[in-house]
Amino acid sequence: NRRVIAMPSVRKWAREKGVDIRLVQGTGKNGRVLKEDIDAFLAG
C-alpha cells in the first residue's frame, strides 16, 4: 500500500473519473501523479 504523491485537485479528478489513483504511474517530480497521468491511464 504505497503512498501516492498527488495534488488534491488531481485526487479529486481521479475520484470523478472512477480511477484508483494507486494504480496510476506518476510521471511528475518524485513520481507525482499528474492530471495527464490520469487521462493517459484512462486512455489505456
Rank of each mutant, 00 (worst) to 15 (best):
D37S: 01
R15Q: 12
R32S: 10
D39Q: 09
E36R: 15
Q25W: 13
R22M: 10
L23D: 10
V4N: 05
K35Q: 07
E36D: 11
K17G: 03
V19I: 10
L42W: 07
D20S: 05
S9P: 06
G44F: 15
R22A: 09
V19R: 00
N30G: 15
A14Y: 03
L23G: 07
R11V: 08
W13F: 15
L42E: 06
V10F: 02
R11W: 14
A43W: 10
G31Q: 06
D39S: 08
I5C: 05
A6Q: 03
G28A: 04
R15N: 11
N1I: 11
L42Q: 08
V10I: 06
S9R: 09
R3Y: 10
L42H: 08
A43F: 11
D39G: 05
E16D: 13
N1M: 08
L23F: 11
G28H: 03
A14K: 01
R3A: 11
W13D: 05
R32V: 07
V10E: 05
A43H: 12
F41E: 04
A6S: 06
N30M: 11
G18I: 03
Q25V: 15
D39V: 10
V19S: 00
N1P: 14
A14L: 03
A6N: 03
G31L: 04
D37F: 01
P8N: 09
L34A: 04
K12W: 09
A14W: 03
A40V: 10
E36G: 13
K12M: 08
I21T: 02
S9K: 11
V24N: 00
K17C: 13
G31K: 07
R3T: 13
R32F: 06
E16T: 10
A43D: 11
R11K: 10
R2D: 13
D37V: 02
K12D: 08
K29V: 13
A6Y: 04
D39A: 08
E16N: 08
P8H: 10
Q25K: 15
P8C: 11
R11I: 11
T27P: 00
N30K: 12
V33I: 15
W13H: 15
Q25H: 14
V33W: 02
W13R: 07
R15S: 10
N30A: 11
G28Y: 01
D37A: 02
I21A: 01
N30F: 13
N30P: 01
G31A: 05
V4P: 10
Q25L: 13
A43R: 14
G18H: 09
G44Q: 15
A40R: 14
R2G: 14
L42R: 07
I21S: 01
P8E: 09
T27K: 05
K17Y: 06
A43V: 14
I38E: 00
R22F: 10
R15W: 13
K35G: 04
P8R: 15
A6C: 06
M7P: 09
K12N: 08
A40D: 12
T27E: 02
G18C: 07
K29R: 13
R11G: 03
L42K: 07
Q25P: 14
V10N: 02
K17N: 15
P8W: 09
R22T: 12
K29L: 12
K29S: 09
K12G: 05
G18T: 04
S9W: 12
V24F: 02
D20L: 04
N1E: 13
E36K: 15
E36H: 13
R3P: 13
L42M: 11
T27L: 03
D39E: 11
Q25S: 12
R11A: 05
A6P: 03
A43C: 12
R32M: 13
K35N: 04
E36I: 13
F41N: 03
V19A: 04
D20R: 04
D37T: 01
T27N: 05
D20Q: 05
R32N: 06
I5S: 07
A14S: 04
V10G: 01
A40S: 12
I21Q: 00
P8T: 07
G26K: 01
K12S: 08
N1W: 06
D39T: 09
D37R: 01
L23W: 09
A43K: 14
G18S: 06
E36T: 14
L34K: 09
I21F: 04
F41Q: 05
L34V: 08
G26H: 03
S9Q: 10
D20W: 04
V4C: 04
P8M: 10
L34I: 11
R22D: 06
A6D: 03
E16P: 01
R15V: 14
V4M: 05
R32Y: 07
L34R: 10
G28L: 02
G28R: 02
W13P: 03
I38A: 00
K17R: 12
V19K: 01
V24L: 06
W13E: 07
I5F: 10
V24Q: 00
V19W: 02
M7G: 15
A40W: 09
G44A: 15
V10D: 03
R2T: 13
G26Y: 02
G18E: 07
E16S: 12
G26R: 02
D20P: 06
K17W: 10
G44N: 15
F41S: 04
S9T: 08
W13S: 05
D20N: 10
V4A: 05
I38G: 00
I21R: 00
V33F: 01
R15F: 12
K29Y: 12
K29P: 14
L34N: 07
G44L: 15
G26W: 02
D20T: 03
V10T: 05
M7T: 15
E16V: 12
K35I: 09
R2M: 10
G26F: 02
A14V: 02
S9G: 10
I38D: 00
S9F: 09
D37Y: 02
G26M: 01
K12E: 09
A43T: 12
A6M: 04
K35F: 08
K29H: 13
V33N: 01
V4D: 05
V10R: 01
K17Q: 14
L42Y: 08
Q25I: 14
G44W: 14
G44K: 15
N1D: 15
N1K: 12
R22E: 09
W13Q: 07
S9A: 14
E36L: 11
R3G: 12
N1R: 08
I38N: 00
T27F: 03
A14G: 03
N30T: 05
V19F: 03
A6V: 06
R2N: 14
G44I: 14
A40P: 02
V4R: 05
D39Y: 07
R15A: 12
A14M: 02
N30E: 09
D20F: 03
V33R: 01
N30S: 10
G31F: 06
K29T: 11
F41P: 02
K17S: 10
R32G: 06
V33E: 00
L42V: 14
G28D: 03
G31S: 06
I5T: 09
R32P: 00
L23M: 14
K12H: 08
G26E: 01
A6F: 04
M7I: 10
K12L: 10
T27H: 06
G26V: 02
K17I: 08
Q25Y: 14
K17D: 02
R32H: 08
P8D: 08
G28T: 02
G44H: 14
F41M: 06
G18R: 08
A14E: 01
S9H: 13
G18L: 06
A6W: 04
S9D: 13
V33M: 03
R11D: 04
L42T: 07
L34H: 07
F41R: 04
R3C: 15
P8F: 07
L23Y: 11
K35A: 06
R2S: 12
V33A: 02
R15C: 12
V10L: 04
R22H: 10
W13N: 05
K35T: 05
P8Y: 09
V19E: 00
N1T: 14
R11L: 09
R15E: 12
N30D: 13
W13I: 10
V33D: 00
L42P: 05
G18F: 06
K29N: 10
G18N: 10
N30I: 05
R2F: 09
V4L: 08
K35E: 04
L23H: 11
R22G: 08
I21K: 00
R15I: 14
A40N: 14
V24P: 02
R22I: 06
V4G: 05
Q25D: 11
K29E: 12
A43G: 11
R32I: 07
R11E: 05
K12Q: 11
A14T: 01
R15L: 13
S9I: 07
K17P: 00
R22N: 13
E36Y: 10
I38R: 00
R22Q: 09
V19D: 00
G31R: 06
W13L: 14
I5H: 10
V4T: 07
L34Y: 07
K29I: 12
F41I: 07
V24R: 00
I38L: 05
E16H: 11
I38C: 02
K29W: 11
M7E: 15
F41Y: 15
I38K: 00
N1L: 09
R22V: 07
I5G: 04
L34P: 01
Q25E: 12
E36P: 08
D20A: 05
A14I: 02
I5Q: 09
L23I: 10
W13K: 06
R2H: 14
V10P: 01
V4K: 06
V24W: 01
V10W: 02
K35V: 07
I5V: 13
G31N: 08
V19T: 03
